[in-house]
Design a binder for these strands. Structure first.
Lengths: 253, 253
DNA sequence: CCATCTTTGTGCATGCATTCACAAAGACAT
DNA sequence: ATGTCTTTGTGAATGCATGCACAAAGATGG
């Protein structure tokens, strides 16, 4: 059983850490902006600031792609744009379908960020027969019945699910069966997929809940700081006089 | 300078790992579904499956909240729903404003997942005077000029930015100046905020780019596997006969 | 051609997250 | 009561990601 798949000839290229991959689009965006302003080169420090990351991290990220920088100068913007685009697979055309053309689906169909990055909305699909034929973002909506045919005719490998939660798994199963191997899921459900299929999820309410947690923590710490300050003040009053007296005038709700 | 803030009395409660916080909403959703089906208790194994995570991870996550399970039985669904809700701060009402009522902003305003989790859309704000007064999701859109007043009158601490990229930083600055301390950013920009303000970003095109990367990698590996299989077959033919011959009949596009 | 100055690329240490594996805890039947 | 059986809670091991700090590389000026 000699599959030489494990020890990977040191060609790098494979083995880019997931965390790095997730940052590449960020770098790419910053670089594209620089490119539009005709900036020829950029240092890791500048680019890191623009992308909102640590410069050492950025350099290490780029080191996984190869050595594209020049010491003492920085990185060539155009070249780096090309290399990252290539690494991310954006030099080719990716037809995607969006399933579920409600408010969110329509917003996605209209979203400019897709087209500009090599993604092409090949079709919009909805289960509502009343929607069929209606153009959204200039593309006529098609009925779910034709899902399999649409996927195959267009060679679609990436699907976006923007249906209600209840329909998501079923839609997902059909997409996968029809040949889709990457899914971006906006429905608030955990999708079960076979091995070899990638799912990424975007959950609007989860993000808000995480913010609420931190918001609450902040409020709690404020209150706590107040209590602590009071305790300290009391202790100070007890043991000696009471000099350090700028207690925050914040009242916990 | 005696701020006893560092060594935290072992009350736990503080010091919940970020990764755990990010999963709590996931558990909460699964638990809510169980609660609706009147399931009284659930084991870590079952719940983990429903939430799509490893059961050991789930137990460790819960251990940060305290010991809410019963050995041999599992977790009380209702109780756990309450504890997680409380920990996330969802037992209180969080008024949020959405700035930028384009396709996406409207979709967010209509999104049901907010209201159901303690979030209340307090106001919709847009820079376009033509939008002012128009109801979206039953809420009249207000003009950006009144942003500060709206924030203060409603005691808003969470803001959602769904504007074009160009306007995002400016809107962000105004939100923060008006007292917002948590921001959910849908605009494809890196926002600069002062310390103490939390920002989470949701970037639709980044998610697609990550999928494209993996998609490309899959395609590459298929091709590679084919080449490898060919090489192996050739080698086999050379050194001995050629017995193990199920070469995948897949053709790289 | 040499010296200096900038900036990359990376070894190393640290910290966080995940997963395993198992002892302790409790339910439940007998 | 006692024993069995299930399931939690957590120590310990491993792996991944981050960030520091510095040597090597190259540009640039004299």
């Amino acid at each position: 059983m000699a599959t030489g798949r494990t020890h990977r000839p040191a060609t790098r290229s494979r083995g880019i850490p997931e965390a790095t991959v997730a940052r590449l689009p960020l770098y790419l965006r910053a670089l594209t902006a620089l490119s539009e302003r005709s900036v020829p080169t950029v240092s890791s420090e500048e680019l890191a600031a623009a992308a909102g990351v640590n410069s050492a991290k950025l350099r290490k990220d780029f080191s996984y792609l190869g050595s594209y920088g020049t010491r003492g100068v920085g990185y060539d913007v155009e070249y780096l744009v090309y290399q990252i685009s290539r690494e991310l697979g954006l030099t080719q055309d990716w037809p995607v379908v969006i399933v579920g053309i409600g408010n969110l689906g329509a917003a996605l169909a209209n979203y400019g960020g897709f087209a500009s990055r090599g993604f092409r909305v090949a079709a919009l699909i909805d289960a509502d027969p009343a929607m069929a034929g209606k153009p959204v973002a200039g593309i006529p909506v098609q009925h779910t019945d034709d899902l399999e045919k649409i996927i195959k005719d267009n060679g679609v490998s990436i699907g976006v699910i923007a249906t209600p939660a209840g329909a998501a798994q079923q839609v997902c199963d059909r997409l996968v069966a029809a040949g889709v191997t990457s899914i971006l899921n906006f429905a608030p459900t955990v999708l079960a997929v076979p091995d070899g299929v990638d799912v990424r999820k975007v959950d609007l309410s989860i993000e808000l809940q995480i913010l609420a947690f931190h918001e609450q923590r902040k409020a709690g710490e404020e209150a706590e700081a107040l209590i602590e300050a009071e305790a300290e003040a009391a202790a100070a009053k007890e043991t000696r006089k009471g000099p350090d007296g700028d207690v925050p005038a914040v009242m916990p709700a």
